[in-house]
Design a protein around this nucleic acid. Sequence first.
DNA 1: ATGTGGTTGTTGATGTGTCATCTATAGAAG
DNA 2: CTTCTATAGATGACACATCAACAACCACAT
Lengths: 160, 160
Amino acid sequence: MTPAPEPGPRWLTESEQDAWYAWRRMFPLVNAEIARDLNQDSGLSEADYDVLSVLGSTDGHRMRISALAELMRWSRSRLSHQLTRMEQRGVVRREEVASDGRGAEVVLTDSGVTMITEAAPLHVESVRRHLLDALAPDQLRTLAEVGEVLRERLGARRKT
Amino acid sequence: MTPAPEPGPRWLTESEQDAWYAWRRMFPLVNAEIARDLNQDSGLSEADYDVLSVLGSTDGHRMRISALAELMRWSRSRLSHQLTRMEQRGVVRREEVASDGRGAEVVLTDSGVTMITEAAPLHVESVRRHLLDALAPDQLRTLAEVGEVLRERLGARRKT
DNA sequence: ATGTGGTTGTTGATGTGTCATCTATAGAAG
DNA sequence: CTTCTATAGATGACACATCAACAACCACAT
């Protein structure tokens, strides 16, 4: 998927290639499995689940839309589209907020609360099955480490 | 993104959570950066690049469509749509194949060859910048290892 | 030759993500 | 109060992925 016809100035070593290929394959593969489970078990997409689970763990099952977007690191646009779809299915509701005429909040409906409550334990099991249980403790630790390193590096780059 | 309101039967330990969060964040984050670079440097999407780079490394810059789909682990449908878009931009061309009346091949146009040739080294640099150069050798090794473990486990599960 | 089943590749519908753009409001400066 | 800029959120156009359905063809049996 990534070897290219004319090697550039500084091509990849074999171990770099291995890591890069693993990186490219791993995530789509595992995530597809988890997403498939989630959809079969609970009828939710990953995006649905993420939104529901954040709202489900907030006080009053509600949050300011922009705050939700920032917390999830989603664009406002993406979230707005997603909420429109979820609102049509009746799992969330939008409400205007008094203190700011522009603002709005999302609120979980009862149906939404039920959904996330039932979906969560199944999802956790699925994550175990497809990822966590497959890996040794030191591999899990390295994953977390790597995540940290990459996040920091990205943050540093952002300021530049 | 994944703590949920009502703990299930077997909730995640702290280190499992760390690994799981890292997993969920890492990939979209890094890939978005790489995709952005690719688009700015070369005007290509990741899908474009993947198709071009495979074709670019084949003999005659051509391949049977179904073989390409299988090699890339894409559905025929996905590839067909992608090829339609790429054909409209003139970077690939479809050709009927004599030996099988159903079949077709994709061929890189000259413009396509130029594109992947110019894009490849920049893309490699980008991958280094955002991923490889940030990680220690043993972290890279663990990534490759983890990829291998997960791939095997998935294969085993498939047969069940 | 004819039917049957499997393969190749395309298509249209639908769901989703991104980008640019828009409206409405907030908030500060004059 | 007006004007200017920033922010919240929605929207429409487009790129992309998935799914189900489809036409055309192959292979092989009868």
